[in-house]
Design a protein around this nucleic acid. Sequence first.
DNA 1: TTATAATTTTAGACTATTCTAAATTCCTGT
DNA 2: ACAGGAATTTAGAATAGTCTAAAATTATAA
Lengths: 228, 228
Amino acid sequence: MGRLISDTVEDYLKMIFDLSAETDRVSTGMIADALNVSPASVTDMIQRLATEDPPLLDYIKHQGVALTDEGIKIALEIIRHHRLIELFLHEVLGYSWDQVHAEADRLEHVISEDFEERVAAVLGDPLRGLHGKPIPTASLEMPDQNTSYLLDMRPEQHGVIHSVNDDDPDFLRYLEAQGLVPGAKFSIVDFSPYDNNLRLRLSGQDQEIVLGMGVTTQVQVEVLDFES
Amino acid sequence: MGRLISDTVEDYLKMIFDLSAETDRVSTGMIADALNVSPASVTDMIQRLATEDPPLLDYIKHQGVALTDEGIKIALEIIRHHRLIELFLHEVLGYSWDQVHAEADRLEHVISEDFEERVAAVLGDPLRGLHGKPIPTASLEMPDQNTSYLLDMRPEQHGVIHSVNDDDPDFLRYLEAQGLVPGAKFSIVDFSPYDNNLRLRLSGQDQEIVLGMGVTTQVQVEVLDFES
DNA sequence: TTATAATTTTAGACTATTCTAAATTCCTGT
DNA sequence: ACAGGAATTTAGAATAGTCTAAAATTATAA
Ligand SMILES: [Mn+2]
Ligand SMILES: [Mn+2]
Ligand SMILES: [Mn+2]
Ligand SMILES: [Mn+2]
């Protein structure tokens, strides 16, 4: 208990956790891109984190990193902070869903456990964040989700929007305008193999919308067995 | 607009502002004590702040510093954040008045102007903080207060508690238990010149309480012309 | 007025985080 | 199997903030 973790390290661990959803091992380059720092800085940092007292990363030279259990703990703590804060900013202070992320990205590092608990209580211990992502529990269990990317759906299939990537405010405003918010049900109408465009109809709406990979890679869905 | 001020610099400026209430020029040693860093670190920092592009401090070697207008601006901004956050934590999240300070001391550096505005709005644009101190306005005017220290009051005088120093949670719990909270009216019953103890009676209470300098130097009062 | 004490400043060093440029290693396509 | 090219790591350096120990300055008080 009580290691001294800087904001910077917290952001590295959080980002590595996110990137780990894609690949088993996360490469130096991926981290550098995601955090907007040079690859050299990343190499430095991951080597340091891999040799901390309890190592936070498992690092193999030239083969990227994976979080240790210790590293996952810290990442989940910060992710819990982040998603609780986003919800709180929206519910209590009236932030729109495209404004919350940037603010939460700073606040997540400085709130106390007490603050976390009080916010969770005020919000009624929510299970999902403002953008649909699950919120790790107080004991740092991440509820597992059975989701896939909208990208991978095909005509005839039905689904519900589960969650959306939240780092680009413009993108979030676009999604909201289209009705592409967590909980929205839809069915796939058409698929264009060459550009990977998907045409879909949101339930209750007449109009169909066509989405390219810029959108479909950023939206997670739950595939439904039957229309409802 | 848009200088890059670190949290550390913000804390230095805020502390120098507070200390300036006592002395015109603030010494290296005072700052070092207050911030719990070595005098050498303070010298380093104040020399740097005095040579910033618009200087934040006016520094004369061996004679301490005074804030420039630019430095005051930044200090007031942070103090506004701090006091709004303390009130918010109390009102919205149910923090007790001894718990808010530590949390606010970290949050004050990371909230946006938007956050500040929204919190101020939710609280109804308060003029005074949880511990009685005035809150700088949105345009960074500090409402001036006509207060003196409880220390300097003498028998026969009446007064109202204006504000109390809030950095020690134990002290705040003690004050609250005694009923020594902002707004409480009292009259001085007795003064002991050798130990500077004051005996006073809170209006509406029978019992008298005796306070030493450990308390009377930490409490600001408004002296009343007549009892009320 | 002068020695001693207190305060402040300087010198030198350390950690955390980042960078650029150069060296190394890995991968891929012929 | 191997030559480029891509990715990664190393080397060297910068900045912010801190420290301790030594030097310099100012204050105090006999
Ligand atoms: Mn977010
Ligand atoms: Mn962050
Ligand atoms: Mn405070
Ligand atoms: Mn602070």
